[in-house]
Amino acid sequence: DNLVIALHSYEPSHDGDLGFEKGEQLRILEQSGEWWKAQSLTTGQEGFIPFNFVAKA
Rank of each mutant, 00 (worst) to 15 (best):
Q45V: 09
Y10K: 07
R27G: 01
A6K: 01
A6E: 02
A6M: 06
R27I: 13
I28K: 00
G23N: 04
F53E: 05
G19V: 04
A55F: 09
S32R: 12
I49T: 00
A55V: 14
Q39N: 02
K22C: 09
E46K: 10
L7I: 12
Q45M: 12
F53C: 12
V4P: 00
K37M: 12
Y10G: 00
H8V: 14
T42D: 08
D15G: 09
S40T: 02
A38D: 00
K37I: 11
F51T: 06
E34Y: 15
L26V: 03
E34Q: 13
N2L: 14
I5P: 00
F48Y: 14
E46I: 15
G23C: 08
I49N: 01
G44P: 01
S40A: 04
L26Q: 01
E11I: 15
N52F: 09
G19Q: 09
H8T: 10
E46G: 03
G19A: 11
E46A: 09
P50M: 05
E34M: 13
E30A: 08
Q31R: 12
A57M: 15
Q45F: 09
E24I: 01
A38E: 00
E24Y: 01
E24N: 02
E21V: 14
I28Y: 01
F48K: 08
H14M: 09
D15E: 13
S32Y: 13
A57W: 14
Q25C: 15
D17F: 15
G19W: 06
E34L: 14
I5N: 03
F53N: 04
L29Q: 04
D1I: 11
F53W: 08
G44N: 08
I28T: 02
Q25S: 11
S13N: 10
Q25A: 10
A57Q: 13
Q39G: 03
S9W: 06
G47W: 05
D15L: 12
P12V: 06
R27S: 04
A38L: 08
Q45C: 09
A6S: 04
T43Q: 01
Q45R: 14
L41M: 12
L41A: 05
H8R: 14
N2Q: 10
P12F: 05
V4E: 01
E46T: 15
L26T: 01
G33F: 03
E21N: 11
Y10D: 00
L3N: 04
A38G: 05
E30L: 08
G33I: 02
E11H: 15
V54K: 00
A55H: 10
P50H: 08
S40H: 08
A6C: 05
S32K: 13
E11A: 14
I49F: 06
Q39W: 05
G16Q: 08
L29K: 04
G33K: 04
